[in-house]
Amino acid sequence: MNDYENAIEIKGLTKRYDGFTLDNVSFDVPKGSIMGFIGQNGAGKTTTINALLNIVKKDEGEIKLLGLDSVKDEFEVKSQIAAVFDELPFDDRLNANDINKILREVFEQWSSETFFGYLDRFALPRKKKFGKFSKGMKMKLQIASALSHNAKLLIMDEATTGLDPVVRNEILDIFLEYLQNEEHTILMSSHITSDLDKVADSVTFIDKGKLLISGYKDDILDSHGVLKCTKNDYREIDPEDIISARLSDFGAEVMVADRAECSRKYSGAVIDPATLEEIMIYYVNRSKKEWR
């Protein structure tokens, strides 16, 4: 039995494409936790996930999944992980019974009982062709198949994108249930930061191929804040404290990375707690410093 502390360990991951570089990305995902992986389109989330899954060959760096090398021990790793994408990867002409017969031969630990249990729970038909499934049904099916071979690590790339809030909530509940087993871990890439607000233990934020923030969600939310002030007061703020500032006719909203320190430094100023979405937006605009 392989013993490990972090389900995912990425050190110095670099992948160069023409016009884009995933640059020296490093972060860990502790075993038994759920990490939200956020960033705007083209930030490098999918490249990172594809490198994790050895779908793309990394140029530099080291990736360990469940304590094993993602390349050398690829098949051992892949028998213990599950990947969920934004699109169902099964042919429209197949049905759930077919998938059960196919995947039980692919995964040693496949459990038909678990799979059909999830199908019943999600009210998914067994004989209906996937071509006639709605997007929500397809995603539920994909999650059912991902959770039916006792995977220790679930890697999801924009899996909840395009789903209605009811289905998303249902799926998030399943993830929380899956995490009841402390051996289980989830890496969840998403644009929908409200989902991560609900379920994530830690967050990694990537932008333009570079890692900006990685840590426990509560720490990140506690430390960041939106300082609201007039334009004149804004001029008084130390530029080093500013991630970026949104200016309007009524004043300025400034993202600060050390809320406690800023509260002390700028006494009297209102500093509201920041959401993940706000943190993402302000960091994305950090190069402009001021934006509208």
């Binding site: 899954l53 050895n54 779908i55 690829e74 098949f75 051992e76 892949k78 028998s79 992980i81 599950a82 990947a83 994408f85 699109e87 169902l88 990867p89 099964f90 042919d91 429209d92 002409r93 692919v106 995964f107």
Partner: peptide, 15 residues
């Protein structure tokens, strides 16, 4: 159809 349904991509995630 494997390419269209992303099965080709999925095969890289299974053992």
């Amino acid at each position: 159809k494997d390419y269209q349904s992303h099965w080709q991509l999925y095969t890289y995630t299974i053992p």
